[in-house]
Design a binder for these strands. Structure first.
Lengths: 337, 337
DNA sequence: CTGTTAGCGCATTCAG
DNA sequence: CTGAATGCGCTAACAG
């Protein structure tokens, strides 16, 4: 078995008491630098690794962060997860997963079970659960610290977000600069905070270019490939077809491309298509998609770091903002003459 | 705070000793059915939830299963993960993640750290780490129970696998039935156990159809989109072009489609393309891919169930086999005249 | 079939 | 700045 070494052994080896070792390990004050070093040496030599269950039990905390999600995009989630894991590892925390159903009653039930069983010290919320009122209420009730990723409202919340509106604006500006004047938008799932920001950015982009806002060019989607297909059918069936479509995520953009190709339209010669998220698919279809790249892994990592800070010193956690970049690929091109 | 209720409170409420409650909760024998029910009632009424850290500490087990991986496919992983989670939940276990680097020295180091910190009671191995000799050796050395998903060698191993060879054979037979006679294969990453099985199935498929095996039609890939692109370039550059390509996974198949479309070839009219895995991408490109579907979530779930059985009663875990299905979509069609 | 007694390995009082 | 005692909530032996 791994490490039968206990804190007691380390204490003996270093010629100090258990408590002193504990102090050093937990970075508590009141340890002379010299003893501190002796202890660390002993730890090193004996290859001591603290027993996490014992720490939890005695210290009344679990060293566990739960990642809550209800998100159809595997790639997005894996990115976030990878970041959360990295942050946890760095601080000797563990991560656990909390897949939640979307129905708000069941969501809360599942959440309660998760909390009951594993008692995480804090949770990271990913969209769309970030904005689920019932969950947020329960979190407040239980006084569980949390960090939100891309929440709809960012005031007084710890977490990380991106300037969604600006990103959408950038995409539209890009299309405008290519000469497009009939630019459609397929919006996202209405429950996602991002959806309204992306619409706002779209509108602002039009305004900036002095293009008239045409409601028939804005079709609601659900962030799924199928909803993109459906929206594209509507859009491409219009008497006055758009020459460019900005979809609120890549899955829907892929749906648009599929419909276009199926109808014999060339992308981007006949139709330009822009997406959002930069999922792997974007670079693995023909043509590869122009999209907005967000640093997903960093978002997971930073949100977790802020959460951990807030757990360790309440009130310390902040709302961070990360930069986006417009990833130009081949699905967008000059507007047809 | 959630549940300040302790086992002691339950014992008192039920009029029995702590130990009896413990027995009931752990499904140990030697409890009269009647007392058993009294205890369960008390548990229910008090909404008692055992404290996992205390259980771990006292019982010298962590109720933790680690999922080890080094796999580029987010979708595959999320599927497996979802299954592992489901199995864990059902048995009151928790899951943790162990992303590993591929370099065998670092892999083992990372593994050791993971084990040291969280002391899982067992681990689930996903390809390609399933077949990493250094890791397997360490696992044996530490005597940690494990389950393997799709390992290269299945004898005397607990886990779950699929008949990869048969699946590849089925795909080739499908292409043959469409009239194809020049069928190429892009093989997978050489370290994956599946790779050789899929090649074997491909060869057997040709043999069955009395088609000559032509080594120039077999190009090595890496399971990545880019390697698929590269292989496709080679294949489509041949003087005697194949009319069908069977790629060992969907990412590479997507690469083949992209190259074909780029060159103005129609899929499937000019070139049929078959994949493997049935990732979401397969149904989200144009044209949607004909591929082999494997029940990934079930594989994760079953492997974990077998692992848990083996942990609870050593020697009980088995190697299970799950069925595959050929998912026919539009990337395959009759061979051109 | 059931209860009692001791720890599991650590952090947390509170003294020095 | 450091140490000795106490208990976190549960299970494992051993009694009965």
């Amino acid at each position: 078995m791994a490490s039968r070494v206990r804190i007691e052994d380390v204490a003996e080896a270093a010629g100090v008491s258990m408590k002193t070792v504990s102090r050093v390990l937990n970075r508590e004050p009141n340890v002379r630098e010299q003893t501190r070093e002796r202890v660390l040496e002993a730890v090193e030599k004996l290859r001591y690794i603290p027993h996490i269950s014992a720490r939890s039990l005695a210290g009344n905390r679990s060293f566990l962060i739960a990642l809550l999600y209800n998100n159809p995009s595997d790639n997005y989630l894996m990115g976030i997860m990878s970041g959360v894991l990295a942050a946890c590892e760095q601080q000797q925390y563990n991560m656990m997963l909390g897949p939640l159903e979307w129905d708000s009653r069941r969501m809360v039930t599942q959440f309660d079970e998760l909390i009951g069983r594993s008692r995480p010290d804090g949770v990271v919320l990913t969209p769309p659960v970030t904005d689920a009122p019932a969950l947020l209420a329960r979190l407040a009730e239980l006084e569980i610290p949390f960090a939100s990723i891309s929440p709809k409202i960012r005031k007084d919340v710890v977490g990380v977000g991106m300037d969604e509106k600006q990103a959408a604006f950038d995409m539209v500006s890009h299309l405008v600069s290519l000469g497009h004047r009939r630019i459609a938008h397929i919006s996202g799932h209405p429950a996602h905070g991002a959806t309204k920001w992306r619409i706002a950015g779209y509108q602002q982009g039009l305004k900036q270019a002095r293009l008239e806002y045409d409601p028939t060019l804005v079709v609601p989607g659900q962030f799924s490939f199928d909803s993109g297909v459906e929206a594209a059918r509507a859009l491409l069936g219009l008497k006055q077809r758009p020459t460019a479509v900005f979809a609120a995520n890549d899955d829907m953009a892929a749906g648009v491309v599929a419909v276009a190709l199926e109808r014999g339209l060339r992308v981007p010669e006949d139709l330009s298509v822009g997406g959002f998220d930069d999922i792997p698919l974007s670079s693995q279809t023909f043509p590869p998609l122009t999209t907005v790249h967000q640093p997903v892994r960093d978002m997971g990592r930073l949100a977790t770091l802020e959460l951990l800070a807030d757990i360790q010193r309440p009130g310390t956690g902040r709302m961070l903002h990360v930069p986006h970049t417009l990833q130009l690929r081949r699905s967008t091109g000059p507007a047809p003459a």
